[in-house]
Amino acid sequence: MESHEAFHRERLRHERRVALADTAAAVGIVAVGVVAASLVFLEGRSLDLAYFTSTPRNFRSPVWQLFLSAAVFALAATVAAFLMGLLIGFATGWERSLTRPPLLARTHGLPPGRRTLHLVAGGALYLLRRVADFYVELVRGTPLLVQMFFVWEAVLIAAPADWDLRTRSLVAGVVAMTLNTGGYQSEIFRAGISAVPEGQVEAARAVGFRRLGAMRHIVLPQAVRLVLPPLTNEFVTLFKSSSLLFFIGLVELTSLAKSLTNLDPKVFEIFLLTTALYLLVTVPVSRAVIALERRYRIPGLGVAASPRGRRRRARRTG
């Protein structure tokens, strides 16, 4: 047996060497790629780090400070829009996820007066739900840019006269972002709430909850686990969308980048800082989502335990 052990140890050592070479090559390719790309985009000159501490014409602060405040502005706008969108999304999402038996059947045994009331209220709610559906489809089916400009035109025309252009643009931008994320979040909440099995509600009612209570105490806590990852992704997406505020003249990262490139031909440095700031927010948050999903996964709820480990469905009759 000893020669076998020795042989095996040698084999393991060889495998470890291959793995090391593989990793080294991988790191090497990434490093070489980054350096090569940088050299190409720098077009022959060398990286000017001093640019970041310089103060461009017409501005009062050094470059890095300008970028930081622009990034903070973008983040603030994103957070505001996200939170307001959350309210819209949750309310409409919940409403849209409710399934009820048809009105006429439901109100069958009631006296005519009450029945009419129920029918009218039910009809109104149904209409509301269809409107919400349309809102969501509209927001998801058209570019945010178009939505933004539509809102912008409306705000420019309808806003109080004493608001200056910047205020109007800001309001329009945030409102557009809110409506946009509201639509997407509505879909997230609807899907999350619907994914909780109907049996849960039945069981809750059997225990004694009324329908609303079942919703609050049984369905929603489970739905939270399901909506957290897509909501976090939505936040990241919204943050990236904040770059579109540049189109309506607001100073956030992208517009700052563009105006600085007009002043100084340090395009690569600007590109570097801009992308770094965006990546600083998006990459950690995206990674956190993946970790979150793994930790809070409930086998059998919504998402399968693992795409590969699924037991084949061999137990079928006939």
Binding site: A314, R315, R316, G318
Partner: peptide
């Protein structure tokens, strides 16, 4: 396959 029993598969 999904329409077959285990034995049939």
């Amino acid at each position: 396959p999904a329409q077959l029993s285990g034995g049939q598969q």
